[in-house]
Simulated assay, not measured.
Amino acid sequence: MSRSLRHGALAATALVFSIAALSACSAGNDAQTLQVRPDNAATAVDSIKIQNLNIITQPEADAEGPAVIAATLFNDGTKREIVEKVTLPGTSATVELKPAKGKGPLVVPAGGRVVIGGKNNASAVIENGREAGRNGNVQTVAFTFSETGDIELGAAIVPATSFFKDFGPSALPSPKPTTSASASGTPGSASETPGEQSSSPSATPDDSASPADGAAAGH
């Protein structure tokens, strides 16, 4: 009996892996986005399913810049759902939603899905990424849908490295001000030298131009 149970368990496990592989292949270009990873949040409320939810920050821990929310939203209902807003409860962070193409609301079509995050997909951008929390923590994300209402679940906060590299913020931090200040100082000091030379009689530039004219004439 125990031997039969072991064989049954192995067969069930193989079936699960086969279905997962076929699902990934049928997903096309978004197969990587649709992979269900054990550390990604997922939930289902009424006809809405949310999978692969993460908050992705800058690749460097001390970098300034935006963060993004990555998720896949499924609508198994007969009516389209509009994502009216996304918030991070307990923080002052604001999330800007944009559809994949054009302007307007972020719509999850009836019987369809929407991928948030990654190239050519819809986006949910947190302007000040630090307000989302620290890497390694879990932050509650609240989605407000036009038909289903509010759905809240916890999202892991991860940097845009490794698996999440292609789904992270598109706007990277600008160079540090100290670097740009020192660079701008160098041309400034150089520009003072010609200024000092220009305080001498204005005939000097004319004299320097004369040999050039003579050389041109010689040619």
Rank of each mutant, 00 (worst) to 15 (best):
D207M: 10
G90I: 01
H7K: 13
F143S: 06
L153A: 04
K98E: 04
N120V: 03
L22E: 10
G112T: 01
A20D: 05
L172N: 07
A212V: 07
A14V: 11
A142W: 03
A63C: 08
A100D: 02
N137D: 14
S23W: 12
D166R: 08
S162M: 10
G188T: 12
K103H: 08
G149K: 03
P169T: 01
S208T: 10
A124Q: 01
G65H: 00
S184I: 15
E131D: 08
E60Q: 09
I50D: 05
S189K: 08
D207A: 13
G117Q: 03
T13S: 14
Q58M: 01
A11Y: 12
I19M: 11
A183R: 05
L97P: 01
L5Y: 13
D207S: 12
I19D: 09
G214N: 14
I55V: 03
S146C: 08
K165M: 14
A41C: 09
S146V: 04
G102I: 04
V125G: 05
N135S: 12
D206I: 14
G102N: 06
T186V: 14
P194A: 00
A14Y: 12
R6Q: 10
P175K: 11
A42C: 11
P159S: 02
G8P: 00
S162C: 12
A181S: 09
G185C: 15
P173S: 07
Q58V: 00
A122M: 07
F74G: 11
D62T: 06
V86C: 06
S199E: 15
S198P: 02
G154K: 05
A217Y: 05
Q51S: 12
T87V: 09
A61N: 15
N135M: 08
A93R: 01
I69T: 00
T94K: 09
T178F: 11
P105Y: 10
E81S: 10
G218F: 14
A11F: 10
G104N: 01
G195R: 04
S200I: 13
K119E: 13
F74Q: 08
P201C: 09
A215Q: 06
I151W: 02
A217E: 13
G214M: 09
A63W: 03
A216M: 12
Q58G: 05
L97E: 03
A190H: 13
V125P: 02
P89Q: 15
C25F: 15
V95T: 02
A21H: 11
K176Y: 14
C25E: 13
T179P: 02
P105V: 11
A41W: 02
T186Y: 06
A209N: 15
E60T: 06
G195T: 09
K103N: 07
K98R: 12
E81L: 05
N75K: 05
G195I: 05
D206R: 12
K85I: 14
V68R: 02
G149V: 07
R3W: 13
G112F: 01
L10K: 12
G214L: 07
T57I: 05
Q58P: 11
P205V: 04
D206W: 13
A132F: 02
S174F: 07
P173A: 01
N29E: 11
K103E: 06
G8D: 15
G168I: 00
L172K: 07
F164W: 10
P175I: 14
R80T: 11
D76I: 07
N29P: 10
P105H: 10
P59G: 01
A21I: 00
S146F: 01
A100C: 04
A67C: 06
E192S: 08
N128V: 03
